[in-house]
Amino acid sequence: MSERLNNDFQFVEVDRKGPVKIAAAVRKQQFAEIYEPFQQKQASEQAHRCLECGNPYCEWKCPVHNYIPNWLKLVSEGNIIKAAELSHQTNSLPEVCGRVCPQDRLCEGACTLNDEFGAVTIGSVEKHITDTAFAMGWRPDMSKVPETYKR
């Protein structure tokens, strides 16, 4: 596990910064995603900007009410597997939403930091969680599922 971040002023000292975008001249030539993946350090630093504001507007604005501040905290602690499990409790395709949701109109638009400091990069962290967990071999745990014989 990487070091746990603990900085109350992370949102002031670290700017909102999304993943690296491939230059327009290059990406115009290809049918491929235009963002590089977040590195774990970047994801943690960005996730740690979350204020845990107590009444998370981001979570209410999200149509599936993702537990956003909770999984941002887990990412800032380097706990990707727990974050993936939590993320899957409310969303069947979090890595898709991280890529295609209009976050500026939903969670990030509702983020307390949005107006003055720049919203937490919620979408990019959401994508990072599930992509990384899958790459680490994590799979949804189906071991405790009862059999109902319904289909």
Binding site: P63, V64, N91, S92, L93, C97, C101, P102, L106
Partner: peptide, 11 residues
């Protein structure tokens, strides 16, 4: 509508 609203309704 959005992908995420369809996911919500599916759930």
């Amino acid at each position: 509508d959005l992908v995420v609203t369809a996911i919500d309704e599916g759930r």
